[in-house]
Design a protein around this nucleic acid. Sequence first.
DNA 1: CCCTGATTCGC
DNA 2: GCGAATCAGG
Length: 177
Amino acid sequence: MNWTDERVEMLKKLWADGLSASQIAAQLGGVSRNAVIGKVHRLNLPGRAKSGGQTKVRTKRPAPNAPRSSAFTARAASHSHTTRSISRSSAATALKADVDAVAYQHIDTRPAEDVVVPISRKLELVQLTERTCKWPIGDPLQEDFHFCGNDSGESNPYCNYHSRLAFQPSQDRRRKG
DNA sequence: CCCTGATTCGC
DNA sequence: GCGAATCAGG
């Protein structure tokens, strides 16, 4: 798989939307998350801001364990803080911020109508694990749908279902016929 | 252990 | 330029 203009554009879009590298890799298909991250850096796209993220890499790292060679070249790491405003039209925002904000507001108020469906949680099969939600492979309104198992009412960022709206007891939302 | 992004460097 | 291996951290 090579980086066509189309794929690069998709990468840029998804990255700017705040999708994780693995999510983007799955969306694009045929590439690993490492490939995505590597490409992001090569494109000089802004890295993830520290907030909410997890990285805190030093300016340089002392060459892992000299896994390949003892030579090491310093590489400037430019970090720019990205200020993203909460936008309802952003799928990523729906995934990240809205999980913290909007989703909780919907615990037992309005249904999903007002909630943006995050394309970002359309996981590919390879990404589904014990920990990830399997919806929408199943129908959330049916008995046989698969979800993350969280019925505590808390939204779960790893869950296709819970990441877009708070869980409601099945008897309350069970579809009629 | 799950995940995240960052970095290095052989190819 | 690409991305696996690796690191560092939540």
